[in-house]
Amino acid sequence: MNDWLLALIEMALFVALAPLFSAWVKRVKCWLQNRRAPSLLQPYRDLRRLFAKQVVLSHNASPVFRATPYIIAGATLLAAAVVPFISVNLPTAAIADVIVLAGFFALARFFQALAGMDVGTAFGGMGSSREMTISALAEPAMLMAVFTLAMVAHSTNLSTVIDYLLAQGLVLRPSLLFALLSLLLVGIAETGRIPVDNPATHLELTMIHEAMILEYSGRHLALIEWAVQLKLLIYGVLIVNIFFPWGIATHNSLHALAVAAGVVFFKLMVLGVLLAVGETVLAKMRLFRVPAFLVLALTLALIGLLSHIILEVG
């Protein structure tokens, strides 16, 4: 029972910290670009304001449009529930393995794209079309990286994978190195960051995710924004906890949990800095360069898989 309570708390922490992580990335980015950064609490204020605002629906909006924010937020929340954040002994982690996790994101994306097409503007269709194209290419790369991971650890359950990697200590594995690089690229593409998509733009030539949610307002928009931030955090936690699992709590004592929380915070901060540096250094790509970017991710994952088979087992 205690474990389940812990899982619930971790999930709440996920939700509560998601805007903070986005704010941190933004802050570092501002520093790097010589701009004045907004407060770290700004995303929370935005969300509160959006929740308070009135929802304006298009005359043309169908029930799908109204249900979508809840489904997106729900699926993302469920995804957060199965990712080990602070403690590796998560009872909820057994509910869904990493392939199901990909399934949750796919479900959210499916509805997001449908909602984009619901109102019947050109923008929405454009965003949906681009989003589905990019995700179609990102999915095999992601699963290939996941397969590499699963073959190394003989499991697709996140808890087991992390346990295995922890028990093994520091081992330099080419396969994991490439899987990490591949997952980083996939994560950037899936969370719609530069250079694949720019979350800050509303320029019709370049926008992908924003084009789909153009018609949303009020609490609907708040939910979607929150889910986007949550998704970014989930990818971040996945990457730091799988590839650098040291510090995560292996037993649920208060002391271990506190230490783990500190370590995870630190790791996420570092990752946030890296992300911000990447977004500052790189320019947004042309849409038809994105396939090349994702083919790179796929190649990396493939090399990871092959080097696992050739170098590590044979």
Partner: peptide, 17 residues
């Protein structure tokens, strides 16, 4: 929890064109 009482009604409007 976050909703301020009674203000968050839904309104129907035209799609942004």
């Amino acid at each position: 929890v976050l909703r301020p009482a009674g203000r968050a009604q839904t309104r129907r409007g035209d799609t942004w064109d």
